[in-house]
């Protein structure tokens, strides 16, 4: 394969930007959360690519931990969203403004 490191980095960057767009633009909390996961995924791709091109295992190992932490975080975050939904009956971010002022 002659695809170089730059291509992978570019891919990771684009994916990260798309995730960022999702966080900023969408009003549904769940979609925002999924975009956050997308950003984490982009970082994972970059890490694996670096690890391969440097010839070490450290990047791959770190991906392990990222996936683990992402899973735990998603579980907890979704539990919170469910609790919030039970209280407010909505997951739209523009209606969850009780912290203003």
């Amino acid at each position: 394969m002659t695809v170089g490191l730059n291509a992978f980095i570019l891919l990771a960057g684009l994916l990260f930007a798309i995730g960022m767009l999702g966080v900023i633009l969408r009003k549904n909390t769940l979609v925002i959360y999924m975009s956050l996961e997308l950003m984490l995924n982009a970082v994972i791709i970059a890490l694996v690519a670096f690890s391969r091109y440097n010839g070490t295992m450290d990047g791959n190992l770190f991906v392990f931990f990222i996936i683990t932490v992402a899973a735990a975080e998603v579980a907890l975050g979704l539990a919170i969203i469910v609790a919030l939904f039970r209280l407010r009956q909505t997951v739209m971010v523009d209606q969850l403004t009780s912290l203003s002022r």
Partner: peptide
């Protein structure tokens, strides 16, 4: 990731029925 995390997401989305 794809099998557990995203499936959990799908469960919650369908639970909350937005």
């Amino acid at each position: 990731y794809a099998g557990a995390v995203m499936v959990l997401f799908l469960f919650i989305i369908m639970l909350l029925d937005v």
